[in-house]
Design a protein around this nucleic acid. Sequence first.
DNA 1: ATGCCGTGGAAACCACGA
Length: 264
Amino acid sequence: MKIATYNVNGVNGRLPVLLQWLKESAPDIACLQELKAPEEKFPLQAINDAGYEAIWHGQKSWNGVAILSKVGKPAEIRRALPGDSEDMHSRYIEADVAGIRIGNLYLPNGNPAPGPKFDYKLAWFKRLHAHAKKLLAEDIPVILLGDYNAIPTEMDVYKPESWVKDALFFPETREAYAKLVALGWTDALRKMHPNEKIYTFWDYFRQAYARNAGLRIDHLLLSSHFDKKLIAAGVDSHVRGWEKTSDHAPTWIEIKPVAKPRTS
DNA sequence: ATGCCGTGGAAACCACGA
């Protein structure tokens, strides 16, 4: 079973690229971020025609997350990260799909840092940490994936020194990510490729993709239930080279099937 | 050193992204 995360940077503007990638890569479950579309403008028909069912949490202009599946319609658990009822950004959606709890997230960027936007990022990280802890305590197979807007280590950025003052690489951000993983999650891409340069994002300008000036900021975190089930992990980086493409590339894992929980 | 590009929405610029 293949599970992917892809920050599309506008689901309608990106539709041809998204459909081409779905056809070519054929993930069983695809989690999207940055829909940049209100609830009613989600291109459900085109996604259905591509063979996927979907649930989504849209918002006018910004943010927005969706879970696509061709292994049964996602059964929605929640569409907001607990901990702040005032937070109106559509940045989280969680569902059960094929016996797996899927938490799809779009963590705030946080720039400029320091400042109120960075405070919001750290507060969001804190809420994610608390929720991630609860999910692990449930002892069910969970994958927390998405655009974390966090560069975990120096290994995950083409030129660390030019990012030290950026919210994606601030010490607080790295620490928050490390603390989250330390709860008991496995960073799937790093686990499968411990010594490789792996990037999931390249800026649109300065020919970043051509220079391979990238960042690894899209992550798939796995609960221990997948320790012996993870087969492969990778980035469809060639998609970043397509016309009218997102600045992120689809990032995926391949796992052995999970036994569906007994229905009582 | 820098949104230099890109998207969406409102209004021919601005907010936002990483």
